[in-house]
Nucleic acid binder design. Structure first.
Lengths: 338, 338
DNA sequence: CTGAAAGCGCTAACAG
DNA sequence: CTGTTAGCGCTTTCAG
């Protein structure tokens, strides 16, 4: 009880947490002394008795991706606003590492966990988390393609299908007919996007079947052969799994003297910050990334508070039209060169 | 002692930590039972007695910046490799929020803290961290410009000066003479880079004084007037505070019909992933970002292990020459059009 | 309104 | 090799 102000530890504890039942004068004194001594309460000790750590775990697949950075930002912001600290782990797109990270989390007993773009099956994850509520953001286990297997509670995702509908419509309006999809890593988003495009295409007419290029080696760069193939085939428009892939391709196509958008239109996904400064500026589907993160934390917080996990939600995305799908040589449509 | 294998808690504790002094058979039994029961030790309880949380705090200025993402990656990787969990906080480039984040950290008693690009004065920070060792990565308090005030221990930074020397030399070799610097947010890196360029320029001849444009509104985007000014002045080459700024400028200069590199050369700083896929691909100074993060964690870890903080270090950077400083119209130099 | 005491889950010291 | 005991720093009854 070196906590010096000639009062008991109990009183100190109460005073520092502004409990009403403590005399204003003693409270003042306690606070003063605490500050003078530089006293900082120990959360670990507290957590032991209140059975809550004021901590949220966040598992991300790759800190390097700017879109993940935005999600982290939103998550951290919401957590911090409610006095929660976030524990971060990087799974490096590797299920084994994700598992290990969850195990480390488990020892620290976070009050909630969110998995971003995880490849792990959701039910397994929930079991591993034992007691902590879990929220999944853009779950990427392949079985989740088409959203069909997303749990009814505790899942948040951007509406890929809606996004792709908008993309296909936009391209059709621009006169593009022979569309191609450049596949990503074969995860849920990738499959969902591909299928959404194909389906949207079927509803349009005249329609040509979707050509699919891919698949991207896991987290690796495309090798040049893909660009070469595309340069030869010359579809009208390329819809890429994400912005990063789109930029890689545009860059490589430059090497084949294929110009965007003059020779071929390109669409990305995510709307990373560079999309609007690139040359050409990239048409893409904007995910509400920060919001995704914020909502994840918020969902966890209400699960903690109320004891029940809120229902899953799907956040709308937005098509952002920029230069990469607007052929300057053709007013109102690619084919209208007459 | 519901920890069920008819042994005492002490034995369980020892068995689970592979202490030698425990019988192999009982250890096996304990492990089996533990797994069957899904028992996971509580780190908070442990930390209370061993006075160590197995946790490292990381404060970053902005999770959105890809370069910070890489540093986070390195840091997390090194920490995880040593069974440490990282607590992440985002300061949003705001000293007040950084302070609050440090206070939150303090309650969780991380075994070490690193501050990335923080604007806080180092000594103040060390005081706030009380007991935890602190490592600064690329400290950005303006007084740190020119590295002069970096503490002798516990600081890591990329060698901005060396980088700018290389940039100036490269530009001179390419025939560029009228150089300009586009300033950043007025932090230590910004001032250091600006001064390094000016100084390097003085050693070259024939030299013209460095023109400085700026200053970037804190964390905001450049407004168009800057690009207009540059378009009018037409320096030979633009050295930008960082890649992001460089891309913004290139984009805006496009609006003024100023082409890079034909009309003006542009250099960035950081070598974000996008730099090598942009059009034009950007000449820039590559920071060893992942390594910076790894070293920060490593430094913390040895400080924890040995009880003394290692000496400060400066990591070399590397000039990466790409299209944005190579004028295709002029072999070997901008002015050699004869 | 305040203090004394018990106990959160674990480890360390000390016996056996 | 294993059990008993005390105690890490806090919160929470329960008495005063």
């Amino acid at each position: 009880m070196a906590r010096g102000a000639r009062v008991s530890v109990a009183t100190v504890s109460r005073a520092l947490r502004d409990q009403p039942q403590v005399n204003e004068r003693t409270r003042k004194r306690v606070v003063t002394v605490a500050r003078r001594l530089g006293y900082v309460p120990n959360r670990a000790a507290r957590s032991l008795v209140v059975r809550a750590t004021q901590t949220l775990g966040l598992l991300i697949p790759d800190a390097t991706d700017p879109i993940h950075g935005e999600i982290v930002t939103g998550f951290e912001q919401e957590a911090a606003a409610h006095e929660y600290t976030v524990m971060l782990a990087d799974g490096f797109d590797d299920p084994a590492r994700e598992r290990r990270a969850l195990e480390m989390f488990a020892m620290h007993r976070p009050d909630g966990i969110t998995l971003l773009g995880s490849m792990l099956p959701q039910r397994v994850t929930r079991l591993m988390a034992r007691t902590s509520p879990v929220v999944f953001v853009n779950g990427e286990h392949p079985h989740l393609a088409g959203y069909r297997a997303d749990l009814t509670h505790g899942c948040i995702r951007a509406d890929d299908i809606q996004g792709m509908d908008a993309v296909v419509r936009h391209l059709f309006d621009g006169g593009y007919r022979r569309l191609a999809y450049v596949a990503g890593p074969g995860n849920a988003s990738d499959l969902t996007r591909r299928d959404a495009i194909a389906r949207a295409l079927e509803t349009m007419s005249p329609s040509e079947p979707l050509r699919v290029y891919g698949a991207l080696p896991r987290n690796g760069d495309t090798n040049g052969t893909l660009a070469a193939e595309i340069a030869k085939d010359r579809p009208d428009a390329l819809i890429c799994y994400d912005d990063k892939l789109a930029f890689q391709l545009i860059d490589q196509l430059r090497g084949h003297a294929v110009r965007v958008p003059r020779d071929i239109a390109v669409v990305g996904f995510d709307d990373i910050p560079f999309a609007r400064m690139a040359n050409p500026r990239l048409t893409t589907v904007a995910q509400p990334a920060v919001e995704l993160g914020r909502r994840a934390a918020a969902m966890l917080l209400t699960a903690i508070r109320t004891g029940t996990m809120p229902r899953s939600i799907r956040l709308p995305v937005q098509l952002v039209v920029r230069e990469s799908t607007i052929n300057p040589a053709a007013q109102g449509g690619r084919r209208s060169r007459t």
